[in-house]
Amino acid sequence: MSDTDIAVIKEQGELNAFCDALSQSDVIFVDTEFHRESTYWPTLCLIQAAGDGVEGIIDPMVDGLDLAPFLKLMGDESIGKVFHAARQDMEIFYRLMGTPPSPIFDTQIAAMALGLGDSISYENLVSGLAGQQIDKSSQFTDWTRRPLSQKQLKYALGDVTHLRTVYDRMAEKLDAKNRWSWIEEENQALAAPSLYDTDPENAWNRMKIRRPKKDYLAVLKNVAIWRERLAQDLNRPRSRILKDDAIQEISDQRPRTAEALERLRSVPKGFAKSRHGAGLLDTINYALDNVDEVAPQVEKPKHRSASPAGASDLLRVLLKQVCDDENVTPRLVANAADLERIASGDGDSTAVMSGWRYDLFGRQAEDLLHGRLAITFNQGKVELFDTSQASKA
């Protein structure tokens, strides 16, 4: 396709015909260009999509263009949707549809199951699997501006034309290694509506709970709700209203006056006397005056026995060795918190101790902790030693 061949879909009839053509595909490949550096809500600028023998770019910024035909495809459970690093694209479609697209395939997740790295870039994925080089000179385009050049449009469309090749190569490798089940849970998790919830009343759930005290919890919840509402109303990133560290300090110190609020190190200087300062103080004082009503019910942290010295470090060595041997990215198998739980005897509560993760790593982790497996080093290389076989010998 030459540069001059790329046209942007701006008319309803064109969009309807494009979606009819896409609907004939079992799998469609999707990407978006958006702007949100200075806003709470992302501004959707382009939608790129490709299917069997069809590809195109939709301009959602055209007044009066109804995206319903495309959104219907995104919600069609009989059609797979392939993304790279889908999280932000899913958030955009969730807002447009009221539900996340499903089913999906995220090439970044699949890359972990194939040992291609953690959070691999699209550029490296295309280079490694499709043998194509991406011209990144249009990467930092302001996609809100019109008109867009043919060079910019070619770059945008490449995000789905190359994605098709990447998916085909990945499918072959997943088939050969029998690892489709390894990515199913992760892909399904990306389609969970709770991941994209923007209801201010639930904003406190994103905050780290540092202490179980009711007055702390009441302030934390109320201030998180206040910040989320204000960020949405002003269409500004929540961190530009108040950072998480500031909410934590406010919840710890519980200032009731502008003077006390002004003394907090993490609260921006002058915020207490700004146009939003009074609202924040009202929010704090209401929480403190109605602690029993406002404070959320949270589960007390489970008491875990201290893990044996070095146990989690040994598990980390084992995880790396197992993943190196099987050519899979460790983060897909277990994270640091999982290893700490396993080391302290609370491993049954982790995903590591069931399914393919148990077969790959969990069983050996148990053997290591119970002395049935040992880790040795030979000429700078890690070796695993079955102690049960040694005792029989």
Rank of each mutant, 00 (worst) to 15 (best):
G80S: 12
P255F: 03
K136P: 04
K300C: 04
A231L: 00
E14I: 02
T141V: 07
N202M: 03
T43D: 13
L384A: 10
E37L: 10
P212E: 12
G56K: 06
H276C: 04
E201N: 06
N124H: 08
R357S: 00
S2Q: 09
T283A: 15
A309P: 09
G131L: 08
A86S: 15
T165E: 14
K381S: 12
V267Q: 08
D244F: 00
G80V: 06
C19L: 00
D292N: 13
R211I: 00
L314W: 03
L67E: 09
L163M: 11
A306D: 14
D367N: 14
Q24K: 14
T387E: 13
L163D: 05
E262I: 07
A337H: 04
P101T: 04
P100Q: 14
A85E: 08
D199T: 08
L114M: 13
Y216C: 03
D89L: 12
M170C: 09
M97A: 00
M112N: 01
R145C: 11
R164C: 08
N327E: 13
H370A: 12
A306W: 01
L73Q: 08
R238L: 02
L116F: 01
P237R: 07
R341E: 13
A246N: 03
Q48E: 09
L96W: 02
K177P: 01
D233I: 05
L148A: 09
P200A: 01
G270P: 01
A130L: 10
S344H: 02
K151D: 12
L384M: 13
A374I: 01
D106K: 05
N124G: 06
A351Y: 02
A111K: 05
K173I: 05
Q253I: 06
A374S: 14
S307Y: 06
K72E: 15
E366N: 12
V333D: 08
L15T: 04
H35Y: 11
E293M: 10
S23L: 09
L65G: 10
N235I: 01
L195I: 11
A374G: 07
L125E: 09
D135W: 07
A260I: 04
Q248L: 06
H370D: 14
S137G: 05
I58T: 07
E293F: 05
D348I: 06
Y122Q: 12
R238P: 02
D244K: 03
D338M: 10
G56Y: 03
V328T: 03
V352H: 00
C45K: 02
R316V: 01
Q152P: 07
L125H: 00
V291Y: 15
S239A: 13
L242T: 02
N285M: 14
H303S: 13
D135M: 07
A390F: 10
L339H: 05
D386F: 04
L373W: 04
G53H: 08
V27H: 09
T283S: 15
A309K: 15
P200H: 00
R331T: 12
S388E: 12
H370Y: 03
I6T: 11
A295Q: 06
L44C: 11
D76W: 10
W143V: 11
S274P: 03
L315I: 03
A130W: 07
S388T: 14
F271W: 13
D26E: 15
S137P: 01
Q108S: 14
A334N: 09
K243V: 06
